[in-house]
Computed example of a mutant assay.
Amino acid sequence: MNSDRVFEYPFGDIYRLYLAKVERKGHTRDELDTVLSWLTGYTASELADDATAALTLREFFTQAPALNPNRELITGVICGVRVEDIDDTLMREIRYMDKVVDELARGKKIASIMRAPRS
């Protein structure tokens, strides 16, 4: 698939798909918002606003208040590609988001998803 086309997907459509996925697996909007807020710096209310605005994925990440530096600790395979091997910066950000949502849906602890230090 052409990367430029992916970058122009509406964030709201992606958010709704993420929400349906995590709810199907017994998780909540609050949990989804927690991991997305950790990743991007958006608040839950800003995520809700962005989900209803005509914001593209490119705009969503370009306007992100504070991309978490620990997001670079996210590794693994998503859609058959190793996240850490993706050269395109924006595509890597999108795949980081996919990865944390997948981890939430699979039941991984939020502290672990957010790459928090172990105590």
Rank of each mutant, 00 (worst) to 15 (best):
E8N: 15
L104Y: 01
L19W: 05
D98R: 00
L36G: 12
L39H: 15
T89D: 08
W38Q: 11
R118N: 13
L32T: 05
L47K: 11
R82F: 14
D88S: 09
L90F: 12
T52C: 06
F11G: 01
A53E: 15
A54W: 10
L73D: 03
V81S: 12
D13Q: 05
F60P: 15
V83C: 05
V81C: 09
A53V: 09
E46M: 10
V6K: 07
A51K: 04
A111L: 06
G26H: 11
L55N: 12
L73Q: 03
G41C: 07
V77D: 11
E103S: 01
I110E: 04
L47G: 12
E93G: 06
D30Q: 15
W38C: 07
I86E: 06
N68V: 11
K109M: 01
I74F: 03
A105N: 05
N68Q: 13
R92C: 07
K21R: 14
K109W: 00
T28F: 14
T52V: 14
L90K: 07
K109E: 00
V101I: 01
F61N: 05
T52W: 07
I94C: 10
R82T: 13
E93D: 12
V77W: 03
A111D: 15
I110K: 02
G41P: 08
A51D: 11
D13I: 00
G12T: 01
T52Q: 08
